[in-house]
Design a protein around this nucleic acid. Structure first.
Lengths: 183, 183
DNA sequence: TTCAAAATACCTATTACTACTGATTTCCCT
DNA sequence: AGGGAAATCAGTAGTAATAGGTATTTTGAA
């Protein structure tokens, strides 16, 4: 049910081809000379928002998958998956949907779990509370007022938190908080 | 290929049952009286790390799915999916794998895209660069040194960035940066 | 009950950031 | 050639946070 309209051997060629020939779906790899798949996807999405992009590649690195997700591709499947899945991916994408193969999902979930379990510092409940309030952009004084304690105490908590987490500034603390879902 | 060993009508009952009867896989809903599925999953994972958890529910809210992912369930499928998918989920999970149905993946991807596209402020390349360096816990002076520009200039950039993003402090900026994947 | 961790509180400096205002240059687009 | 955004630089104040230190009270576990 699909019509093959052309091919290109890298990102630059692909963009040139699209310029002359209107297409509905673009199937691309990630590693290519001249312009890689991620960059190509971004360019296509920027200049031709209606063109759907399906990434078919061997890469299963969470970081790369994340980049592709951010580039807003409609689909991502691994090269070793069957023909049936490719057809289903194309069908769903043609129908204004998205398609990410099960392997991809699993990779992301696992990466996520890993990230979560790598930290097991002993941050006390009160400290966690303070971190949350810091995350709400409250100053030391404001936090003290909110918790009905002295600003000095909040100071001490901040100090202890920074020491425990190994951060030098609140910026580092915020990164820590985000990575460990404390907010 | 599976053996049914028992059932419970809420989280508390389930925990009590597990206490007396060893099980391999727990299938649970999310909304339950006494103790919800997310909490149950966390408790089970904490006390019986070897028990696999498959969540079968009607919820398709990204926030809830995220909670479940964080609770480290091995699988998540929607109630309206077919029996074949349920069996496959159980099979994969029994085989030390994970299973998240395609719908779930799509919901997450869409939520992610939405989050990304809701913000289209005009932050300049230089400003983005500054944000990244702030994220590296560099002070204004340090950033100036790194970029070979005056600290005053960095000051101005910071000011403009805060104004553009509507943040009052760097903490707010860091939240913005994380939500928009600027780091 | 005794010990340790957590939470509470204070002091003194120094450093860093925010708020206000104003200005020049460079570069791209029309 | 002109307009406008981006990037550059400067001053002055005031506010907030970090780095040292010290010390008391509460609380939960052994």
């Amino acid at each position: 049910q699909f019509e093959f309209v052309g091919e290109a051997s890298n990102g630059v060629e692909a963009l040139a081809f699209i310029k002359g020939t209107p297409i509905d779906i673009l199937i691309t790899d990630i590693s290519m000379a001249e312009m890689n798949g991620t960059e190509l996807t971004k360019q296509v999405k920027k200049n031709y928002p209606d063109i759907k992009v399906l990434v078919v590649t061997m890469f299963n690195d969470p970081a790369i998958i994340n980049e592709i997700l951010m580039a807003e591709a409609e689909g991502y499947i691994l090269k070793n998956t069957g023909k049936a899945e490719l057809v289903q991916a194309l069908t769903q994408i043609a129908d204004n949907g998205t398609f990410y193969s099960r392997e991809i999902m699993e990779i992301m979930v696992k990466a996520r779990m890993k990230r979560k379990t790598t930290s097991d510092l002993t941050i006390s409940p009160r400290e966690t509370e303070i971190i949350k309030l810091i995350g709400e952009e409250l100053s030391t004084a404001a936090i003290a007022e909110r918790l009905f304690i002295s600003p000095r105490t909040v100071d001490t908590h901040r100090k202890n938190i920074l020491e425990k987490t190994g951060c030098r500034t609140i910026v580092g603390l915020m990164k820590y908080a985000f990575e460990n879902n404390l907010l």
